[in-house]
Every structure is written in C-alpha cells, then in structure tokens.
Design a protein around this nucleic acid. Structure first.
Lengths: 206, 206
DNA sequence: CAAAACAGCGTACACCTGTTCGCTGAATGT
DNA sequence: ACATTCAGCGAACAGGTGTACGCTGTTTTG
C-alpha cells in the first residue's frame, strides 16, 4: 500500500499538465496543441498519453478546473486577510492580478476557451467565473447589506471588469501591471459608488 | 480597363473570407483552421490561396480589420440616430448586441485572438477596441462635459463590460440575448451613475 | 493582333498528426 | 512464491498538413 506505483503515475500526469502549460504560454492556443508534442515535452511516448487522459480535451478541462480552484483558494485566503483590516477592493484585486501574473498560461487558456472551442469547454469556464461571482455576491449581501438583485448586478459587472483587466496583463511588464491594477481599483470603486447611489435612489422611491 | 479580371479576383477573395468565417463559426478557433479546408470551402485549389494571401495569418488579420471597421460604422450610424432623440446608452448597446448576433463568427475571432496567438494579432484586436473606447471617450467629454481623465476611466470600464457581454451572447438564443442586453444597459447605467457621483465628489472637494 | 500578365490547377514531397496493437518489466495482490 | 496488473514503449498505418513547381487558358496591355 506504499503506492510507489501510483506515485510515479501522478508524477508523469503532472509532467503532462506542465508540458501543456508550457506550450500554452508559448503561443497559438490550446486547440492547435498536439498530443504528440505535449507527450514529447513530458518525456513519454505519445501512446502513453492515453494512460492518463482520454484525449487532449480531457487534459484541457483538467487545466481549467485546476486554474479555477487555485484562484478561488487564493481569494478566500485574501478575504481572511481583509478581516484583519484592509480595503476589500484593493486586497482582492491585487491578489487577483498577482494570480494572473503567476499563472498567465492557464488564465490565458481560461479566457481563450471562454469564447471558443467545444461547448463543454465553455461551460467549464463559465462555471469557474460563476464561482467567482457567487462568492462576491454573497459578500455584498451579507457584509454590505445589498439586496440580492443589486448585488447580483454589481458582482457580474465587477467580474467582467476584473477578468478583462486580467487579460490586459498578459503581455505587459510588472510596472505596467501595477498601473492596470490601480486603474482597475478605480473602476471597481466607480461601480461600487454607482451601486451605492442606486440603492439610495431606490430607498427614496419606496 | 473594365476590370473583369480584377472583379473575379475580388470575388474569390471574398469567397475565401466567407469560407474562413463559416469554419470559424463552427468551432475550434482560428489557429486550428487549415489553409486547405478554407480553400476547399471557397471552391479553389489549395495552391491558389497564395494568389490572395501570404498565409493564414494575413487572412486572419483581414478578418479582424473588417470586423472592427463594420462595428465602428454601425455605431456611428447609431449615434446619428440618437441625435434625433433616444437614450444614448440604450441605442448604443442594442446596436452593439445586434451586431454581435449578426457577426458572431468574426466577433468571436476578435475576442479569441485578443488573448492568444501572435503578437500582431493581439495588437490588431487592441487597436479595434481602442477605436471603440476613443469614440466613446470623446462623446463623454464633448457632450457630457466630463473631464478627460474621468471620461477615459469611464469609457474603458464600459468597453470592458460591453465586450464581455458580447461574448456572453455567443451561444444563446434571441430571447436570452434580450435579457443580456437589458442587463448590460443596467450595468452601464451603474457605471454612469458612479461616474456622476465621482464628478460631484471631486467638485465639492475643490 | 501578338506579347505579357496572372488567377487557378494538378502533381508531388516531406512532414506531422491521432490512434491501434502487442509487447515488456516492474510493482502489486494473494 | 506465483499470478496479475498496468505504466510505458516502439512500430506501423491512414490521413491530414503547408508549400514548391510548372503548366494552362483567359484577360489585359502595347
């Protein structure tokens, strides 16, 4: 039950995942990524690929899942850091941007496959983004006392802004990334302010 | 100088462009689109492709350019319609969404290649989005008397929201698209309201 | 009307692709 | 200890790919 065998299998599985990420960061999109090249970079024979994934799509979905999972964990950590003081908006966005910088390859895959490729791919990406929105929405309802409706509208807007800003970070150096981060913070504050104004407006009408 | 020859050439050139768009709408991303298949669908021999484009990338850039151009023309028409009365936000967004519905294939290309593929591709896409932002920014400065700075922040935010919403329309039917349109209108109003509040805030401070 | 230009074609080549099949040798179960 | 499992391999195949080359037949030019 030592699992020396299972250990090795997991290791080459990771090698495949890493190989895919490397070739992804290079260029040209997941769909034009070949099973053979991935296997080659992972250091195994092309045929051995099938011991780990049914096909390339299954690998791709794994990548999307892992990316989303890592992002969520990171943001949950960030939110705990906030409870010990600090601007929710600033901390969240800085965390997010740092994540994009550290995981450019997979995040690029996420956004790329969001508007392309097979249906299952798109659904997987949408699911990840929905996770992001849902956690933000709950925060707005529970901590900021927004109505569910206005919180939903707000979190959807913020998700759009933040994910777009993430895409803007792909090619740029760290300096530029900080500029984008600051800009994004201002933009999210703009939305928050708009939502606040809307809330007052609705309250006055009732 | 009748140009019966040039006429024919332009015709098959368009056939190639159309073929590429068709295969794009199908699925799987531009990068995994083959010269041979495009030529086949256009009804010419693979080798004849080179009489029109140096390679597939040149065709892709052409597609991006055409998409952006068409979008800008449409929005300029829309803005004229506004001057004869009508909400600027509503008319613009409805026009935009209609455009996405009518040009799903190329718009998908636009967003897909925004975060992938070669540098020249990404730059071309960014240029198109910048056009969009610049026209909106000018409007905000000239017609709504915003400061350049706040107008820039605002137009960038709105561009992010609207283009993301466009991406959300890819898979959906007309009914769903109207729902997304209405939601987007609310979101842009949220931003406008936030910008308005910010302006007041700044004025009071000075 | 002759000469040049040129869109389009067919053949050919070298290369890369996904996937099948049967084999190996080491880890595992009994 | 012996039998089973199974990750990984190599050979092979059928089919797709981009592109070079030289040839047509029509249009354009002079």
């Amino acid at each position: 039950m030592a699992g020396i065998r299972a250990k090795q299998k997991e290791k080459t599985r990771q090698a495949l995942i890493n190989a895919a990420m490397n070739q992804l960061s290079a260029e040209s999109g997941f769909s034009s990524l070949s099973l053979r090249e991935v296997a080659r970079e992972a250091g195994i024979a092309p045929t051995s690929f099938y011991r780990h994934f049914r096909d390339m799509d299954e690998l791709g979905l794994t990548l999307v899942d892992e990316c989303g999972l890592a992002l969520r964990q990171l943001l949950r950590q960030a939110r705990q850091r906030i409870e010990t003081g600090g601007s929710i908006i600033r901390v969240s966005i800085e965390t997010f941007m740092q994540f994009v910088a550290d995981n450019t390859a997979t995040f690029r895959l996420l956004l790329q496959e969001r508007s392309g490729r097979s249906r299952s791919f798109r659904l997987a990406v949408v699911r990840e983004i929905d996770h992001f929105k849902a956690e933000l929405e709950d925060y707005l309802v529970n901590e900021q006392s927004f109505t569910r409706e206005l919180a939903e509208l707000q979190s959807d807007t913020i998700a759009k802004i933040v994910f777009s800003a993430g895409a803007d970070c792909f090619d740029v150096d760290e300096e530029e990334r900080e500029i984008i981060t600051e800009k994004t913070i201002l933009q999210v504050r703009l939305v928050a302010r708009g939502a606040e104004a809307t809330r007052r407006l609705l309250k006055r009408q009732s």
